[in-house]
Write a protein that binds this DNA or RNA. Structure first.
Lengths: 180, 180
DNA sequence: GTCCATGCAAATGCTTTGCACGTAT
DNA sequence: ATACGTGCAAAGCATTTGCATGGAC
């Protein structure tokens, strides 16, 4: 069993620009300043961000981009596989750039909302296996573990979340017992 | 390795009513006709539904409930663990009642949008294990496999989805190569 | 010069809320 | 009688879109 906490090392800066340019050219789309700026800001840091986070990062960098253009550009970047979006069941979608990064899964801390990436080959295999066994042709999958991260486990909010979870498990087990 | 396609057998009809009533009483909330109706409709069939699906089912059954009350009731049912919500990355949330049902994962067909449940003990263990190994206290997890179901694999839309996926994999592998 | 892209504001679509009236306890 | 619940319509929010102007090619 091997886990693999992948550091966000971006090994060949600039490659994403080439890919983006090629994609745009290929479809008669234009490489504008707004698109260049957004690509730069997105690739200047590998983290998980919402559309709003990105908007703020742009403004802080002194770049003026409208939300409309921002959303339109996100769609293009997802289309050319430079970006993926995740739905962690919160209000807004999360994005992360993925060029040169293998698929990975996420852990979301219920206390601090922090996101940690992990990867398990075993998990990957099992999910495909499960799908195939049910006559399903797997295309992609998404696994998210919600819990409390090491940093939060001893804090107020962390304890609170864990306590609440313990109570929930107890009552749901009782329910399953009743049904059996 | 054992998978387990759980049939949606509701073994003890009525138990959910008792739980709901107890929950309401305990907090000084009232058991109204609207709440009774919604609970009935929801438990009359174990499927995955959106708020809108539920609204339609109510109307078809000749019951008048407003969307507002419907949403307010869904919140209560989630709170008392009779219902869970899933976010499959589409516009609206999906709900399913869960009393007496163990946790399970989902496969979503990208062609027909159909949802199949499955459960793998191995997968459950692995996810917890992965979390713990990273100092994370797991509370719950969510795994969704997206792909094409057996029924759709030979159809127009199914083939299309699979072909598109093949192309995507090819280009992303090329990207990872470049980075290495 | 031709399209495509941009910004703005208005529109969407799901979900939530304020309010005056109705009803379970 | 006293909350709490309900429906309606309006508000919220993230995201999308129509349109006139601006910019890449």
């Amino acid at each position: 069993m091997s886990f693999n906490y992948e550091k966000n090392v971006h090994t060949e800066p600039g490659a994403e620009v080439a890919i983006f340019e090629a994609y745009l050219r290929e479809r008669g789309l234009k490489l504008t300043q707004a698109r260049r700026d957004l690509l730069n800001v997105i690739f200047s840091d590998h983290g998980h961000f919402t559309a709003d986070d990105l908007y703020d990062r742009c403004r802080r960098a002194g770049l003026r981009v409208s939300k409309a253009t921002l959303y339109r550009t996100l769609i293009i970047l997802i289309d050319c596989k430079l970006l993926v979006d995740h739905d962690f069941g919160q209000d807004a979608k999360y994005f992360e750039h993925c060029y040169g990064h293998r698929h990975h899964d996420h852990m979301v801390c219920l206390a601090c909302r922090g996101i940690t990436e992990f990867r398990s080959e075993e998990l990957e295999r099992l999910q495909d296996h499960a799908a195939i066994e049910l006559g399903f042709a797997p295309v992609r999958h998404s696994t998210t573990v919600f819990g409390v991260c090491a940093g939060c486990a001893s804090g107020e909010r962390g304890r609170q979340v864990l306590e609440e979870a313990r109570r929930a498990v107890a009552s749901s087990e009782a329910a399953v017992e009743n049904q059996a």
